[in-house]
Amino acid sequence: MRNRIFISLAMALLLLFTAAGSVGASTVTYDPSLAHKTGKMAYEHTKYLTYTVGARVAGTAKEEEARDYIESQFQRMGYSTNVQPFSYTRSGRNYNSSNVVAYKKGKSSKEIIVGAHYDSVAAGKGSDDNASGVGVMLEVAEVLKHINTPYSIKFIAFGAEEVGLRGSNYYASQMPAEEIENTVGMINLDSLAVGDNMYVYGSAGDKGFIRDQILNIAAKKKLDIGTNPGLNPVYPAGTTGDWSDHAPFNRLGIPYAYFEATNWEIGDMDGYTQTVKHGGVWHTQNDTLEFIEREFPGRVEEHLETFSQALTEVLKFFGKTSTAK
């Protein structure tokens, strides 16, 4: 009798652990209809990274959890996905992180990179910086998965951005000359949710054509996206600083565009002061969906919808002189 009870308990425990393991390893799924409502899927991804994962400090288990979620979402969409591990040293300690790369074949073998970092600082939950950017990237990847885009696309979720652009620096350092030559541009998504104004920046001079095409799309689609007005002479109109994941690609001579929500007309007029009402939200305890939605009702949804539409449109028509009406 005791043996039978023991065996029954053992089997029950085995089933329990097996079930728990399968749930933990399973891919999070969403109602497919969300992909047809601009900004809705981006919001769900932002919520997941905010509430289920939380702060995703570089080199920690939480950053790995976010990486696994992003990889599983690309795989759910049917993309060929690769995890690119790298290590770095900071303050005398060694850390490990990864980039997640998903590839979409287009009409041309020439490639455009779309990137967003998925790590965050310890303060807050990284909802704006940068769950919002990852959310938009994942939504657009899903919207475009069955669309024959003009160029092939590499969607890259960068690790360890907050500790020195480690992921994007590593990826750029590993690009052979042929890949650099084959890359027509890079579009960076960083901190899209809370800033007073929505912007797109770009390379200086003739290489700013991606930014210019996005501004053209925004005008035709009546999207409220502008660019740095150039009030601070350190950052000429239309450009920005080298503080995000576009910088390593810019140094390679690859044209870039960079989506961001902030406010270039307040503070030191350098883009660091995001809002009139609360100043900077990124890198503070206020970088949570709860705070942003309480203090700026409707802003998150509006921004995710706007940026998702703009990114989708430029990737659908990239390189063409006109866009769909």
Score class of each variant (00 low, 15 high):
Ser98Glu: 14
Asn99Thr: 09
Val101Ile: 15
Ala102Glu: 03
Ala102Ser: 06
Tyr103Trp: 13
Lys104Ser: 08
Lys105Arg: 13
Gly106Pro: 12
Lys107Arg: 11
Lys107Tyr: 00
Ser108Phe: 13
Ser108Leu: 13
Ser109Leu: 07
Glu111Trp: 07
Ile113Ala: 04
Val114Arg: 05
Ala116Pro: 03
Tyr118Pro: 03
Asp119Met: 08
Asp119Gln: 12
Ser120Trp: 02
Ser120Glu: 09
Ala122Phe: 06
Gly124Thr: 02
Lys125Leu: 04
Lys125Tyr: 00
Ser127Thr: 11
Asp129Met: 03
Asn130Pro: 09
Ser132Pro: 08
Gly133Leu: 01
Gly133Gln: 01
Gly133Tyr: 04
Val134Asp: 01
Gly135Phe: 06
Val136Leu: 06
Met137Pro: 00
Leu138Tyr: 03
Leu138Asp: 03
Glu139Ile: 02
Glu139Val: 01
Glu139Asp: 08
Ala141Glu: 00
His146Gly: 05
Thr149Asp: 11
Thr149Trp: 13
Thr149Cys: 11
Pro150Gln: 15
Pro150Val: 05
Tyr151Thr: 11
Ser152Asn: 12
Ile153Phe: 12
Ile153Arg: 11
Phe155His: 07
Phe155Asn: 06
Phe155Ile: 11
Phe158Tyr: 15
Phe158Met: 08
Ala160Trp: 10
Ala160Gln: 00
Ala160Leu: 12
Glu161Ala: 01
Gly164Ala: 15
Gly164Arg: 09
Asn169Ala: 14
Tyr170Val: 01
Tyr171Cys: 06
Tyr171Ala: 04
Gln174Arg: 14
Gln174Tyr: 04
Gln174Leu: 02
Met175Gln: 08
Pro176Asp: 14
Glu178Gln: 13
Ile180Thr: 13
Ile180Pro: 01
Ile180His: 05
Ile180Phe: 10
Glu181Gly: 07
Glu181Pro: 00
Asn182Val: 03
Thr183Trp: 04
Thr183Met: 06
Met186His: 10
Met186Ser: 02
Asn188Cys: 11
Asp190Val: 02
Ser191Pro: 07
Val194Gln: 10
Val194Asn: 09
Val194Arg: 04
Val194His: 01
Gly195Glu: 06
Asp196Val: 12
Asp196Trp: 12
Met198Asn: 08
Tyr199Met: 09
Tyr199Thr: 07
Tyr201Cys: 09
Tyr201Thr: 09
Gly202His: 09
Ser203Tyr: 03
Ser203His: 08
Gly205Trp: 10
Asp206Lys: 15
Gly208Trp: 11
Gly208Arg: 06
Arg211Cys: 02
Arg211Asp: 04
Arg211Ser: 01
Asp212Lys: 15
Asp212Ser: 15
Asp212Cys: 11
Leu215Ser: 09
Asn216Glu: 07
Ile217Phe: 08
Lys222Thr: 14
Leu223Gly: 13
Asp224Thr: 10
Gly226Arg: 04
Asn228Ile: 00
Pro229Gln: 09
Pro229Ile: 04
Gly230Arg: 09
Gly230Pro: 06
Val234His: 10
Tyr235Val: 04
Pro236Ser: 03
Ala237Glu: 13
Gly238Ser: 02
